[in-house]
């Protein structure tokens, strides 16, 4: 039994990674978006390091959130269109496992690259050097939460043609705890405080999301695709 579940997880993980590799251009767009919006901030606010510095933790987190949100829309869309989602649902395994595989793949192609690129944006927005490690740590955990929660919204709106805007309306309110503790981790690091505490809460959120979100996603996919 458990082997079959693992196969569902790794199978969909590998499949989605391969698909993302074949469509590299598409997978890179959240990253480019992340960098692009970072250039807008000095243009819109001020190029002075002194004015960018206090805003940097919050802005980096807001942009990471938006970049993840942009990419979640397509999480189940192509599978829904070509019918492979139907197959996934009627397969005898627990639906939560392939779902978790897909979301993990999504994190590996969006959340992880965002985390790795974030030091560049940190430099661009003159983030103090003490903030870099907390930023990367919080982004790594936080984007995982964002992918999981965003996938619930993506599953609910999968059958709608113009689901993108609706998806953001559904999901952004649920994102708020993540952004609070994410930017607080960075800020605590800059202020020389103990940034492990907010990071630990982010970790707890991720653990909860890993446990609950796949079930919600599976339920949502069943509901929406049955009609």
């Amino acid at each position: 039994m458990s082997n079959a579940h693992n196969a569902g997880f790794t199978g969909y993980l590998q499949r989605d990674l391969l698909l993302a590799y074949r469509r590299r251009g598409e997978a890179a767009s959240p990253l480019i978006f992340f960098l692009l919006v970072a250039t807008l901030v000095p243009l819109g606010v001020s190029p002075e390091a002194g004015r960018l510095e206090p805003l940097a933790p919050g802005i980096i987190w807001v942009m990471a959130l938006l970049a993840t949100l942009l990419s979640t829309e397509g999480l189940f869309a192509s599978d829904y269109q070509d019918g492979s989602l139907e197959q996934m649902i009627i397969a005898p395994q627990l639906l939560a496992m392939p779902v978790l595989g897909k979301v993990t793949a999504h994190w590996l192609v969006t959340g992880l690259p965002l985390t790795l690129v974030s030091p560049i944006i940190g430099i661009m927005l003159s983030l103090p050097s003490d903030g870099f490690i907390p930023m990367m740590a919080s982004l790594a955990l936080g984007t995982g939460c964002l992918s999981l929660v965003g996938a619930v919204g993506a599953a609910l709106t999968v059958s709608l043609r113009k689901g993108g805007l609706l998806l953001s309306l559904l999901v952004v309110p649920l994102y708020m705890p993540v952004i609070i503790f994410g930017s607080a981790t960075v800020q605590a690091g800059i202020d020389g405080l103990n940034w492990f505490a907010p990071l630990a809460i982010l970790g707890a959120m991720l653990a909860t999301a890993v446990a609950l979100c796949p079930l919600a996603i599976a339920g949502a996919l069943r509901l929406v695709s049955s009609n």
Binding site: V152, L174, A216, A220, L223, V224
Partner: peptide
């Protein structure tokens, strides 16, 4: 069904 699900998640 979809909004009931969303309300539960909320």
């Amino acid at each position: 069904k979809a909004s009931a699900m969303l309300a539960l998640v909320g």
